[in-house]
């Protein structure tokens, strides 16, 4: 039991405890967990603003880099602030999260996919109006 990491992130492999009862941890360890989360989130935020300003990244890839940084920072927030872990008592939360992510991806990418195809394949509105005259 002495090989615990000293911050709150993920589960503790091999740690035997009754699920549903919080791990015994000192205040300093808990604060350190939050501080680590804050530091990582701040780092990713700075990276986002840097990626937006710099011209050192391949220009067309900046938007994609920002998307990746977003997903990374959301992951940091989920682990360090919302305490989503691989504990057995977190199983339901993770399944619900996975379902939520599926729906979010369907809505966002599905909408974009359909609408871009509509834009490409349908006649522009002004042309349509001209033909109806």
């Amino acid at each position: 039991m002495s090989e615990h990491s000293d911050y709150e992130a993920g589960s503790y492999v091999g740690a035997d405890r009754v699920p549903g009862q919080p791990e015994e941890r000192t205040l300093a360890q808990e604060v350190r967990g939050y501080l680590l989360g804050l530091g990582l989130a701040a780092l990713l935020t700075i990276a986002s603003f840097w990626a937006d300003h710099t011209r050192e990244i391949y220009a067309s890839g900046i938007a994609m880099a920002l998307l990746v940084l977003t997903v990374a920072q959301i992951g940091i927030h989920l682990i360090f602030f919302l305490h989503i872990t691989t504990d057995p008592d977190n199983e339901n939360n993770i399944l619900a999260l996975a379902f939520g992510v599926l729906i979010v991806c369907l809505i966002v990418f599905g909408s974009l996919w359909v609408m871009i195809h509509l834009n490409n394949n349908l006649m522009p509105m002004d042309k349509l109006m001209e033909m109806q005259r």
Partner: peptide, 11 residues
């Protein structure tokens, strides 16, 4: 907000 500041403001 992380999604908003990245994907709305920065992009």
């Amino acid at each position: 907000w992380v999604a908003i500041f990245n994907l709305v403001y920065l992009v």
